[in-house]
Structure formats: structure tokens, C-alpha cells
Design a protein around this nucleic acid. Structure first.
Length: 462
RNA sequence: GGCUGCUUAGCAAAAUGGUUAUGCAGUGGAUUGCAAAUCCAUCUAUGGCGGUUCGAUUCCGCCAGCAGCCUCCA
């Protein structure tokens, strides 16, 4: 029985889909004006794993993750670069997809863009005005009247009085109330714009997600996810917009993932302490990054450091080493490990515990290597379960021998050396054999003798 | 200031009202020509002070520290 932590109730709840066997999942994606950093990677990997597990569990899932491709930051960046905003967003959308593929993140079923959802956005704003929940402000922008929406703040645990007391932004004269937020923003000369009843403009930051999610999944759907920082105001405003416009409940369950930190501080654009996915990929292989992300629970903070990434690499090496040389028996699965794995994942997607099961599995696999049939079953189980997490899908040898292809020795060179060492060993010329091994070690290659006078090798530091 | 959440061994990270997490590192042993890999054993733990309880790391309260949101942010 799958349990998921619901931000709305601040407790784990048994998951009950609206329609038996079906799940609608919407996740707030990127605003595409820059490269993805590791924080974005966490969202992508976490919800990809959630999606994989739903499917593995037999649900018919519709996974929607939007792209916000028009907003102030995009316009600003495009101006700075002296390029059109479409050229800019197109570049970063491509880059994002590239990063995703590297991290084995499967594409969502639907990936709507704000710029392609203008009709729905405008329709929703019109509905809000009609219901008296929105108004045209002194500057022509359209605002949401927060005070008119009952239950405002129920997701983030805030109330209007506290928010007003804590108000510290300069008051916008165009608004009736400082808490009101913009739904439609009038275009300045030269800015990209779309026609509307209120004049040429563009959507405010929150409305596009309300429009795209309800459009793709219906007015009321199962799960909405995103980073913790979106809880307020973004998701709070989405609720106000969607429920205000449709009069129906918006979302049953809200999932929020924790931050990636650097030196115990949130990784973010504004702090400038972020590492882009492509930067990190220069030093670590993609599967290691994915493993690192899933090694802690999705709601916990995740501290980014070289030590952590290296640990992840070592751990992954252990799993691949267990698989090395074992003939996988297709479709076989050990029920005991399967059950333990599912229990872990059923408990609010506890990937850390699920991984611990994989390590227990690897230990037993190492023990029974001489028993080909048992080993084959365990190896198959290991690959299948790890596949739900999106890891361990490479050939063991490819993983262990891959990496640092550029500066390192070529495979041919290594094989030659290893062969030379075997000859030395056969001649009992230990000094020579050790010398070869030391030389390879110095170049990041570890030689390991295996039964039958053979040797295997792998690259250090994956 | 208001509101969340966190505090587990050398590092990372789970779980649990009384029983081995797991990975890396350490120690001892097996294996090995020697290593590596692997296996076995083993050492480090639950921020502080109270309370509930037969028993609390786990529940409750207070304190301290940390992080986050309240402004763009995944």
C-alpha cells in the first residue's frame, strides 16, 4: 500500500487515486533562461523515479511537467544577450533535455509550454474577473484579490494577517492590497506580448501552471509536485487561481522535494552557489549523479560535495562489481527482495532504504557466485529493482571500465599490459607482475585477479 | 519578528516504544604469490534538560543549534 507525504496535511497518507488505477501528476518544471543546476536535477530525478514507481506498480500514469518559457527573467536575459526570447528559450530547452537524457530521466507524457497555452491562461483570468476574484489595477495589469479567496495560505501554513504584518516589499500603488499578485502584465514597448481583453501583455508567474495543469489533467487531479520553495507563494497562488476559477478542488496531494545544499546552504541562482548539471558531468558520470540524488530521501536536504559524489561512485561500483561476470536469468525475480524493495518505496518513496535492499541483494549475490542459477536470479532481481530507480542499467564491464576515456589509457593498452602481467605471473616473476600492476594503478587502473589464472581490471574513480 | 522543518556513530544516510539498517572509512580474520575484489567478525550513535512509560533515539514540553519560507528561486 503506497503512502505519500502530503504537504497539505503534513502527514503521510495512503495514496488513493481519484480514478481507480489512474494517476495524474503535474510537476513544476524549469523557467528556461539558464542551464539546469543540481537542484533542478534533483526535481527531475526525484519525480522521474516517482513516475517510474507508479508505472512499475501498475498505475496508468499521466505525467505532466511544464516549461515556463516567458517571464521577466527570460526577457531580461534575452535583452542582455541581444537575442530574441524565443532563441534563448529554445537553446535552454534543448540543453535541459540533454541534461535529462544524461541523467536517465524519462520524458514526461506532456510537456506544455506557457507560450503555447495563452488561450487557456486568458480564459482562466477572464473567469477570475467574472467571479470578482480578480481586477484590473491602476496600471492596467490584472491582479488576483487574495483576500477574497477563502483558505488562502492553507498549503504553506500562512494566514493573511501574518503576511500583512510581515509585509516588507514596497507597496505597489497599482494593487488594492499588497498581497495581491499579478495575473496579466501589460507589455512595455518592445516586449513580447499576446493580445487580450486587457491589452497586449503576458501572463504573471503563477497563472500558467494553473492553466496548464488543469488543461492537461482536468480541474481536479491527484498529485502536484515541485521544489519546497514553490510552496509559497507559487503553489498557494495556483490553488487560489484554479479553485477560484473552477470552483472545484484543485489537487488532492502536494509533494515537495527538499533542496540541494552547498556548505549547508541552499543552492540557488540568487546565492550564486550553484553547479550546473553539465559542469558536474565533467567530473562525475551521470549515473553517479543520479545515485547521489536518490541516496537520501526526497524530502531531506541533500548536501552537495565532492566527497558525497565520490561516495556515490564507490557505492555504485560495489553494485556493478556484484553483477560482473554473472549471467542474468531474464525475468527471474526473488520475491523476498522484491517485497522489501516495494515496502521501502511504498513508504513515501524511501529510495535510501530501497537502495539498502539493493546492497543486501548484492552481498548475497557475491556469496552465491559459484551457483550460476541462484546468482542469475539475484542478478536479474538486482537489475530489475535498480531499474525502477533508473540505475544499474549498463553492462557491469562498461561501467567499471568506462570513464575518464580522454586522458586515461586505452582499453587496448590496458589489455596488453594485463596480458603481460599474466605472463609474468605464469613465470612466477612476481617483481615484474607487481611492477605492471603498480604502473597501471598509477594511471587509475586497478587490476584484479580472478579464478582460473585470469585477471580483470577496472578504472578507479569511475 | 511570524510560520515550517531538521539535529543519528569518523563521513553520508535510514528506521524503530524494547531486536544487525545500508554505503564509505577503521580494526581483526578468511581468501590471495602479494594485492585488489569478495566473505566473516568487529569498533564508533541517537544535541541538552525535563515529562509520559515497565522501558524512549523513537511520544510530549522546554532550551540550544542549523536550514527554509515570509521577495525571484527546484
Amino acid at each position: 500500500m503506497l503512502k505519500i507525504y502530503n504537504t497539505l496535511t503534513r502527514s503521510k497518507e495512503t495514496f488513493k487515486p481519484r480514478v481507480e488505477g489512474k494517476v495524474g501528476l503535474y510537476v513544476c518544471g524549469m523557467t528556461v533562461y539558464d542551464y539546469c543546476h543540481i537542484g533542478h536535477a534533483r526535481v527531475m530525478v526525484v519525480f522521474d523515479t516517482v513516475a517510474r514507481y507508479f508505472r512499475y506498480s501498475g498505475y496508468d500514469l499521466t505525467y505532466v511537467r511544464n516549461i515556463t518559457d516567458i517571464d521577466d527573467k527570460i526577457i531580461k536575459r534575452a535583452n542582455e544577450n541581444g537575442e530574441g526570447f524565443l532563441a534563448l528559450t529554445e537553446r535552454f530547452i534543448d540543453a535541459m533535455h540533454e541534461d535529462e537524457r544524461a541523467l536517465s530521466v524519462l520524458p514526461p507524457d506532456i510537456e506544455p509550454k506557457a507560450t503555447q497555452s495563452m488561450a487557456d491562461i486568458i480564459k482562466m483570468i477572464e473567469a477570475l474577473i467574472k467571479k470578482g476574484l480578480a481586477y484590473v489595477g491602476g496600471n492596467g495589469d490584472v491582479f488576483y484579490s487574495v483576500a477574497k479567496f477563502e483558505n488562502y495560505g492553507k498549503l504553506s501554513g500562512k494566514n493573511i494577517a501574518d503576511l500583512q504584518a510581515g509585509e516588507r516589499v514596497d507597496i505597489d500603488k497599482a494593487k488594492k492590497d499588497p498581497l495581491d499578485f499579478v495575473l496579466w502584465k501589460m507589455a512595455k514597448p518592445g516586449e513580447p506580448s499576446w493580445d487580450s481583453a486587457w491589452g497586449k501583455g503576458r501572463p504573471g508567474w503563477h497563472i500558467e501552471c494553473s492553466a496548464m495543469s488543469t488543461c492537461c489533467l482536468g480541474n481536479h487531479f491527484d498529485i502536484h509536485g515541485g521544489g519546497m520553495d514553490l510552496q509559497f507563494p507559487h503553489h498557494e497562488n495556483e490553488i487560489a487561481q484554479s479553485e477560484g476559477a473552477t470552483g472545484e478542488k484543485f489537487v488532492n496531494l502536494w509533494m515537495h522535494n527538499g533542496f540541494v545544499r552547498v556548505d549547508e546552504e541552499k543552492m540557488s541562482k540568487s546565492l550564486g552557489n550553484f553547479f550546473t548539471v553539465r559542469e558536474v558531468l565533467k567530473n562525475y558520470r551521470p549515473e553517479i549523479i543520479r545515485f547521489f540524488v536518490l541516496s537520501s530521501h526526497y524530502r531531506s536536504p541533500l548536501n552537495y560535495s565532492d566527497e558525497q559524489l565520490e561516495d556515490a561512485g564507490a557505492a555504485l561500483t560495489r553494485l556493478y562489481t556484484a553483477l560482473r561476470g554473472v549471467e542474468v536469468i531474464e525475468n527471474a525475480c526473488d520475491p523476498e527482495y522484491k517485497m522489501r524493495f516495494e515496502q521501502a518505496m511504498d513508504d513515501d518513496f524511501n529510495t535510501a532504504v530501497a537502495m539498502a535492499v539493493l546492497f543486501d541483494l548484492a552481498r548475497e549475490l557475491n556469496k552465491v557466485k559459484s551457483d550460476a542459477s541462484r546468482a542469475g536470479v539475484l542478478a536479474s532481481t538486482l537489475k530489475t529493482l535498480a531499474g525502477v530507480l533508473g540505475i544499474l542499467q549498463n553492462e557491469a564491464d562498461d561501467f567499471l571500465k568506462g570513464g575518464e576515456a580522454e586522458n586515461g589509457l586505452s582499453e587496448e593498452d590496458i589489455n596488453q599490459q594485463v596480458q603481460a602481467r599474466i605472463e609474468a605471473k605464469n613465470n612466477k616473476d612476481w617483481a615484474k607482475a607487481d611492477e605492471i600492476r603498480d604502473q597501471l594503478k598509477a594511471q587509475g587502473v586497478i587490476v584484479e585477479d580472478i579464478a582460473g589464472g585470469k585477471s580483470s581490471w577496472r578504472r578507479e574513480n569511475v
